[in-house]
Write a protein that binds this DNA or RNA. Structure first.
Length: 299
DNA sequence: CACCCGTGGAA
DNA sequence: TTTCCAAGGGT
């Protein structure tokens, strides 16, 4: 196990300085965004950013928040409305979880997005990353925020590996040890590590010549070895159950939440058994509703 | 911990 | 064309 107990000094300050000068101008980093939507805006953006690229989130985020500017307003929507507004952002269960979280916030927290990490963790669809991202970026509190970008940066700079291993609680401990003492500074450093991983220390062809911490990077010092990728490969999508589910849901979204005869939903799917399993699993997930021989988004 | 869950752009 | 990967989380 790599030793992370003695990280290179000044890593935090160098990264933070680089971030202050080079951060991308993203919607959720703007003062006006926070003024208008508060922690709810941060929470929604983080939900959308779970496994969906920044460039695809941006055009959806504004429309979403204009329609549902508060948790209470979204709590009054139907699942069908939410899943349809989610459109093609992917992993539609996240839309359901976000909806559920809005209801939980309305019921348990008087419509205010909680600031406490444990309270955030108790909400649907919120895990270690999102809970701390909201606490740090919306409320400015000092917590280790570790996403896939940060894990890759830590793996390279500290461990000299080309790619991070599976996500682990150990990454939280490592990041916590690197945080500057001041709350505001620690929020910046969290964002800086993510930003470096997103634009410089990328998974493929990293731009080390533009890296502000290249001189303290263990991976560069070791000659940028390919240490192999410990992560399990993403399953093939073509022909998968996920593809079938996606096709079913697209038909129902395109029907604008209206009823669609069950036998008119992807009738020519190559594998009829797979199609039926997909529909059943979507119903089990609460993403589809069956009624009178028809399928529809749940009302 | 391993596996599952969408979608689309880039290499 | 195929593969990779993207501000993860639930089970």
């Amino acid at each position: 196990m790599p030793d992370r107990s003695t990280p290179p000094s000044r890593l935090s300050s160098e990264l933070s300085n680089w971030y202050r000068a080079n951060a991308r101008d993203l919607p959720w980093r703007r003062r006006q965004f926070h003024d208008e939507y508060g922690a709810w805006g941060t929470l929604v953006s983080e939900f959308m950013l779970q496994q969906t690229p920044v460039s695809r989130v941006i055009p959806h985020l504004e429309a979403w928040l204009r329609r549902w500017p508060t948790p209470a307003s979204m709590s009054r929507a139907t699942p069908a409305e939410v899943v349809q507004q989610w459109a093609n952002l992917g992993y539609p269960r996240r839309a359901l979880w976000l909806h559920r979280a809005a209801i939980e916030i309305t019921d348990r927290h008087r419509g205010e997005v909680p600031r406490d990490v444990d309270a955030l963790l108790a909400l649907s669809g919120i895990g270690d990353y999102t809970a701390r991202a909201v606490a740090a970026f919306a409320y400015g509190d000092r917590h280790p925020v570790v996403d896939t970008n940060t894990r890759r940066v830590l793996a390279r700079v500290l461990d000299g590996r080309s790619q991070p291993g599976p996500a682990s609680r150990r990454d939280l401990v490592t990041m916590a040890a690197l945080l500057p003492q001041a709350d505001a500074d620690s929020a910046v450093f969290n964002a800086a590590a993510m930003e470096l991983g997103a634009v410089v220390c990328t998974a493929r062809s990293p731009r080390c010549e533009r890296c502000p911490v290249v001189d303290v990077c263990a991976w560069v010092a070791a000659g940028r070895p390919d240490t192999g990728d410990e992560r399990r490969r993403q399953a093939r999508y073509e022909g998968s159950d996920r593809q079938a589910r996606g096709a079913v849901l697209k038909v129902l979204r395109d029907a604008a939440g209206g009823d669609v005869p069950a036998d008119a939903v992807i009738p020519d799917w190559p594998d009829a058994g797979q199609r039926d399993r997909a529909i059943d699993s979507l119903i089990a997930d609460g993403l589809v509703e069956a009624a009178e021989g028809c399928l529809r988004l749940p009302r």
